[in-house]
Design a protein around this nucleic acid. Structure first.
Length: 123
DNA sequence: ATTTGCTCAGCTC
DNA sequence: GAGCTGAGCAAAT
């Protein structure tokens, strides 16, 4: 899938740059409530992009307070990395927000499904 | 539970 | 260009 974006300077539609896509990723990340997580793949599915791009965006995140990238984990609950301090800091932050982490895994019940919420709500 | 294949930006030669 | 590395995932085994 190819994403397109509005370019106000040129008053035209153009193919999204990587930065545009990363902005969209951040916007979705900010929708995750305190005490909940979602997966890289779930965010990727909303935008129709490759999950690895979501990981790339998280790594580039330079506003870790505004953009809660610690609430994005692997689909199977693995914490994966956290560029500000590694997985242990990620685990600590999640615990502070009330997310249980068992054997370095986040249990299913803490996941929210952004795709279901935004794209494919129950009929 | 483990392996395999797909994927793509960024980095190195 | 070619080859490798990830903050990934799903399907097959």
């Amino acid at each position: 899938m190819v994403l397109y974006t509005w370019d106000p300077a040129e008053n035209t539609i153009r193919r999204s740059s990587l930065e545009d896509i990363i902005e969209a990723i951040y916007a979705l990340t900010m929708l995750i409530p305190v005490g909940r997580v979602t997966s890289y793949g779930n965010i990727a599915r909303v935008l129709g992009i490759n999950p690895r791009l979501v990981g790339l965006a998280m790594k580039k995140n330079n506003k870790p307070i505004i953009i809660p990238c610690h609430r994005v984990v692997a689909w199977n609950g693995d914490l994966k990395n956290y560029s500000r301090g590694g997985p242990l800091v990620k685990e600590k932050l999640l615990r502070l927000e009330g997310v249980k982490v068992e054997n370095r895994r986040v249990p299913r019940e803490y996941f929210i499904d952004l795709y279901k919420m935004l794209i494919d709500p129950p009929t």
